[in-house]
Simulated scan of single mutants.
Amino acid sequence: MENRINNITYDDMKVFFINKVKELKSWPYNGKNVVIAPLPEHVTVNPDKPSMFCFTEINDDYMEFRRSAFWLVSGTVVMAFMISMMSIAYLAIAVCFFYDGSFESTLFLCFFGSFFGLYVLPMAARIAFFIPHDLPVRLNRKTQKVYIASLILHGNIFRLRPELIFQEMDWKYIEGWVLHRSVGKGTPYYGLHLVENKSGDINRLQQACLYRTGAPWSTSEMEYQINNIMSTWSYCQHFMNYLPVPDETEKDKNFVFLSNNWLFKWPEAMDKASRSSG
């Protein structure tokens, strides 16, 4: 018998996620070898010890935590930062070593400077310095809604256009999924993804990443990060169902290179609704 979840087959769900992998570009860069598995619909795993992987703002109405917008410890951000710095260095080197006042060197410098100064540097600098990379998820148990901020990169490596997107999901229609893909030796991807499935129609699903593993330095760290998937899912279920959860506000806030949190702001209407007491 064909396995189905709310009238959607596992194969259809796998294709759905593969297409999202290609679309989002912020986690495994293609959709090959993706393995998916549904998480329990009720609190059944470690019911007495749910935990969050990071500092969590929490009160009687809602909780909020932040997670990196990119896979592999913000690899895209690091790359953009390095490109922006290298662009400046290349321009300085070109001026010092190639410019001698001749027409040829002037023409070369103008071409070189135009390419880096007008194309490469602005694109890299915008990604590195002018978009937030540590984005929040807010769960409101009074209204039973989940609010998620995510980042999509449009285009390709030579022309990336970042876009912040905001999603609102109904908790009662949310399914938890684990995605796994072996991208390279020592750098597998594991992610906890939420899927809002209201109608059982594959074309009307929306999904968002709640947590993803990074690039650990050891096997034990990788195991710890993988275990965070189930404990985070359990923590969210506990909170949304008014069950006790440990206080995670004492945890250290995650360090994210160039997080640019000061640039992030919830849309006014969503910020008000997500803080509502119902």
Rank of each mutant, 00 (worst) to 15 (best):
Y119Q: 07
V120F: 13
P122D: 06
P122K: 08
P122S: 08
M123R: 11
M123G: 05
A124I: 05
A125V: 08
I127R: 02
A128N: 07
F130Q: 13
I131L: 08
P132V: 00
P132K: 00
P132N: 00
H133I: 00
L135R: 02
L135A: 02
L135Q: 01
P136D: 03
R138E: 04
L139K: 03
T143C: 02
T143F: 04
Q144Y: 03
Q144G: 01
K145A: 01
K145L: 01
V146Q: 00
Y147D: 03
Y147Q: 05
Y147C: 05
I148W: 02
L151Y: 05
L151I: 09
H154C: 09
G155P: 08
G155R: 11
N156T: 14
N156F: 15
N156L: 13
I157P: 08
R161H: 10
R161S: 07
R161G: 01
R161L: 13
P162Q: 03
L164G: 04
F166M: 01
E168N: 05
M169Q: 08
M169T: 02
W171C: 06
W171L: 03
Y173C: 09
R181H: 09
R181Q: 15
R181P: 04
S182K: 12
V183P: 00
G184R: 07
P188A: 12
P188L: 12
P188K: 10
Y189P: 07
Y189N: 12
Y190D: 10
G191R: 04
G191W: 06
L192N: 06
H193C: 15
H193E: 14
V195F: 07
V195A: 05
N197P: 01
K198P: 06
K198W: 06
S199Y: 09
S199R: 04
G200W: 06
I202T: 05
N203A: 11
N203Y: 11
R204G: 06
R204F: 09
L205H: 01
L205Y: 02
Q206Y: 06
A208Q: 03
C209S: 13
L210G: 07
L210P: 02
Y211L: 12
R212V: 02
T213R: 03
P216E: 05
W217P: 03
S218D: 10
S220E: 10
E221C: 13
E223D: 11
Y224H: 10
Y224W: 14
Y224M: 13
Q225Y: 09
I226T: 01
N227C: 00
N227A: 04
